[in-house]
Computed example of a mutant assay.
Amino acid sequence: MQIDLHCHTTASDGALTPAEMVMRAGVMQIDVLAITDHDSVSGFYAAKKAREEQRLARLQLIPGVEFSTLWEGFEIHILGWQFDLEHPAIVRLLAEQRERRHQRSEAIHAKLVKQGVAADVLPTPRPDSRPELNSESTAKVVTRLHYAEALFAHGYCNSVQNAFEKYLGKGQCAYEKPQWCLMSEAVAVINAAGGVASIAHPLAYDLSNKWLRRLITEFKDDGGQALEVISSQQNPEQRRWLTELALEYELLASAGSDFHYPGRYRELGRNLTMPNELTPVWHDWPLQIRGM
């Protein structure tokens, strides 16, 4: 099966609407897809409706989310799947994270305006505060990427990356320190709602091997079950290293493209083959095997 458990829609910082994501998944012949927007599940509801409208019986959608969390001063992203979307703990944490995002966005907006950026070219910092439970629309959250794209589009910097270097990156004039939930809380909430928790892109946090091992140890002690071992932009050495860690710490392995927009180097479902020695996180999920 073609499985991708990590992608983003316009409900967070992706370029495709949930309906467009479902359509692309069909084109790319994806069998199992988890939409894992940042601190939001509204994209899943919209994708589920689009799947029915497009009659993509082959595509299986998995409830998912990517929580932004804090651990020892680092921002660590925790993926969750197969949880009860209406569980009170999930609903509460999503609402709290959304409010944290709104507050951070407002602070970034104010700092950029103070630096002379015209307010009317920037994203609305609090575009939608509606509860997202059972929402058929995509309740949007504004991220730093949205600000970076606006700054680039209106000539305040020469690239999206330059927007982070000049304004939005850590230590720059419009940086606002995040106030996310603790990693342990996100894992506990995912577990309470019957889901599975995984560390997203473990090599993206600039941790030494010693600190990465400490992160994995504490994550597992908190009840975490999986490690995102397979991603589309890895070299063989990185994949081998993460495979070794998953085996050593007896963690399930996940695979995901972290797809945000169509591009040459990162595509939905591409280069996500799971090594035979690993136990996939989906090994006991009730998936429909194609052709059976």
Results as ranks from 00 to 15, higher is better:
residue 1 M to S: 10
residue 4 D to G: 02
residue 5 L to Y: 08
residue 5 L to N: 01
residue 11 A to E: 09
residue 16 L to D: 11
residue 18 P to Y: 13
residue 38 H to C: 01
residue 40 S to E: 02
residue 44 F to D: 01
residue 47 A to V: 00
residue 49 K to N: 12
residue 50 A to F: 07
residue 56 L to D: 13
residue 56 L to R: 08
residue 71 W to C: 04
residue 72 E to F: 02
residue 75 E to S: 14
residue 79 L to K: 01
residue 80 G to R: 03
residue 84 D to R: 04
residue 92 R to H: 13
residue 97 Q to L: 13
residue 97 Q to I: 10
residue 101 R to H: 13
residue 107 A to T: 11
residue 108 I to Y: 02
residue 110 A to S: 15
residue 116 G to P: 03
residue 117 V to F: 06
residue 118 A to M: 04
residue 119 A to G: 07
residue 123 P to Q: 08
residue 128 D to I: 03
residue 133 L to H: 02
residue 136 E to V: 07
residue 142 V to G: 08
residue 150 A to Q: 02
residue 151 L to M: 00
residue 153 A to H: 12
residue 154 H to M: 03
residue 160 V to S: 04
residue 160 V to C: 06
residue 164 F to V: 09
residue 169 G to T: 06
residue 172 Q to C: 15
residue 175 Y to D: 10
residue 177 K to A: 15
residue 179 Q to C: 15
residue 184 S to N: 10
residue 184 S to P: 03
residue 186 A to P: 09
residue 189 V to Q: 08
residue 198 S to G: 08
residue 205 Y to S: 11
residue 205 Y to W: 02
residue 209 N to L: 12
residue 210 K to C: 15
residue 212 L to S: 11
residue 213 R to Y: 14
residue 214 R to S: 14
residue 216 I to C: 10
residue 220 K to F: 09
residue 220 K to N: 11
residue 221 D to Q: 14
residue 222 D to G: 03
residue 222 D to M: 07
residue 230 I to L: 03
residue 230 I to K: 03
residue 231 S to L: 05
residue 232 S to Y: 09
residue 240 R to D: 12
residue 250 E to Q: 14
residue 254 S to Y: 05
residue 256 G to E: 09
residue 264 R to C: 06
residue 265 Y to F: 14
residue 270 R to F: 12
residue 271 N to T: 11
residue 275 P to T: 04
residue 276 N to M: 12
residue 276 N to R: 12
residue 279 T to P: 02
residue 281 V to K: 03
residue 282 W to N: 10
residue 283 H to P: 03
residue 289 I to P: 02
